[in-house]
Design a protein around this nucleic acid. Structure first.
Length: 464
RNA sequence: GGGCCUGUGGGGUAGCCUGGUCUAUCCUUUGGGAUUUGGGAUCCUGAGACCCCAGUUCAAAUCUGGGCAGGCCCA
């Protein structure tokens, strides 16, 4: 896509998703249409989590300084980007309060009160909250925010290392399915030591590639081992009557998912929304002519009711503007299916359908409407996913090298690929390459170690 | 972290260099009305802006400083 950056900000505004004009850097407003996309997206995520035994909770925004600072490695990872509440009215506070950059410390403080014996485990909870990071530069709407308005964070505690390990697997499955539902292709990799979540034993991350060829992290899963449970004293009585610290995991998804839905599927005409998160799945446009208004309006209502009955999110655009204008309006907003209702069609007992993903327009028999629409929404979701996957493949380059190839040559080739084609370069794993030194030389990020077609690779790309 | 650039109706812009003519341009948006309506209609009529604070000056959208906000480049 030519100039993705510009396209992206324009689409946020014109499709009424998110208003960037709020007068604080890195803070904006979800508009009704954007908020609905967000809500349907979260509905999917909530469903997946709850199917697997997670329960939703809600923790305070404020975290006292001593709590936040308790886990040494963790706080080091965040200390330069924490917002602090220092005053209550005019009085300075005795203990500064942080606006949560993430909630590990708050949640684990409480977990201590909840966990006594192995029967209290596992605990699997999640919340959807706002979090704060004082980004000094390069904030971007929904991608790099100071107030992350949507942070779904799940936290689990387990009696054994093995259970925690399994939980990591479950979390990966959940996210894999989540992104599948949204038609967002991902590369899953284990982050390098030097880039893992502060306080974690290891981090598994989900990345996708935006139309400008840059890589963006859109989900993370962390195995915390006993790092936090030791500092927060999350001790419990084991089955055998001994004592042990719990084994923990946490995993998160943010506003970047919404950004990805927009970026991955959109085209020159605007958004293309996956049917399962589209606020309006079908829009009916009545084509009104003098003398034939009523018959068209009645038919539109009739179709509206039929579709409503089968649970489709459908609207009739009754505004008094030209149909062409309406077409553009709803195409910009990514509505998957449009139905045009005009006098000719009514006479012929047919309905005209338009699908946003391919731009195809066709007629069906009126009586087939219910089945066809349900099926079409299904086909659109599938087609969008396949198209996105195809594009992602085009952004992945396998780089092979021989035993005696020098590091310098590999660096040179990686740089060239990233310059020309961008995206992700996969290099067969080697310890010689998997280090910060190499990362520095290629002037890009080592995303981590990933499996691809059965092989073990180091993934490299320029990130957001 | 270092450097550069920008801020004019809801959005995009002209004007700024060379202060006065700005009662601020054009496109889009938007309220009302009429004729229209199978891919962004037309006409009539209305609405809407110089980021904030200080300074220079008889006079500031225009010059200076700071703040806030946005964008770009390099590490």
């Amino acid at each position: 896509m030519e100039n993705f950056s510009q396209w992206y900000s324009e689409i946020l505004e014109r499709a009424e998703i998110y208003d960037v004009r709020y007068p604080i850097k890195g803070c904006g407003v979800y508009l009704p249409y954007g908020f609905k996309i967000r809500r349907y997206t979260l509905d999917i995520l909530r469903g997946l989590l709850e199917e697997r035994g997670h329960e939703e909770v809600l923790f305070p925004l404020l975290i006292p300084e001593d709590l936040l600072a308790k886990e040494g490695e963790h706080i080091k990872g965040f200390e330069d980007e924490v917002f602090w509440v220092t005053h209550g009215g005019r009085k300075p506070l005795e203990v500064k309060l942080a606006l949560r950059p993430t909630s590990e410390t708050a949640i684990y403080y409480m977990m201590k009160l909840w966990i006594k014996v192995h029967k209290d485990l596992p605990i699997k909870i999640y919340q959807v909250v706002n979090t704060f990071r004082y980004e000094t530069k390069h904030t971007r709407p929904l991608i790099r925010l100071r107030e992350i308005m949507t942070f779904k964070e799940a936290h689990t505690a387990h009696a054994t290392r093995e259970d925690a390990e399994n939980q990591v697997g479950e979390a990966i499955d959940i996210y894999r399915e989540f992104f599948h539902e949204l038609g967002i292709p991902v590369i899953i990799s284990r982050r390098p030591e030097w880039d893992k979540f502060p306080g974690a034993e290891y981090t598994v991350a989900f990345d996708t590639v935006f139309p400008d060829g840059r890589v963006i992290q859109i989900g993370t899963v962390h195995n915390l081992g006993q790092n936090f449970s030791r500092t927060f004293d999350l001790e419990f009585e084991t089955l055998e009557g001994g004592k042990d610290y719990v084994y923990q995991t946490c995993y998160g998804i943010s506003d970047r998912v919404i950004a990805s839905i927009i970026a991955i599927h959109g085209d020159e005409r605007g958004l293309i929304l996956p049917p399962n998160v589209a606020p309006i799945q079908v829009v009916i446009i009545p084509l009104l002519f003098k003398g034939k208004r009523e018959i068209v309006e009645r038919k539109a209502e009739e179709l509206y009711k039929l579709l409503k009955e089968i649970g489709i999110r459908v609207e009739i655009d009754k505004r008094d503007i030209r149909p062409g204008r309406k077409f553009h309006h709803w195409e910009l907003r990514g509505v998957p299916v449009r139905i045009e209702v005009g006098p000719k069609d009514i006479e012929d007992k047919v309905v005209t359908l338009y699908r946003r993903d391919t731009g195809e327009k066709y007629k069906i028999k009126e009586e087939d409407i219910k089945g066809e629409v349900l099926d079409l929404l299904e086909r659109i979701g599938k087609n969008m996913r396949e198209r996105a996957e195809g594009r992602m493949k085009g952004y992945i380059t396998l780089l092979d090298y021989k035993e005696d190839t020098s590091i310098e040559e590999i660096v040179g080739r990686v740089k060239e690929i990233l310059k020309k084609k961008r995206g992700i370069v996969l290099i067969p794993f080697s310890g010689k390459i998997y280090n910060e030194d190499f990362e520095e030389k290629v002037e890009a990020s080592i995303l981590g170690v990933t499996e691809y077609n059965g092989g073990k690779y180091i993934a490299v790309g320029r990130t957001y």
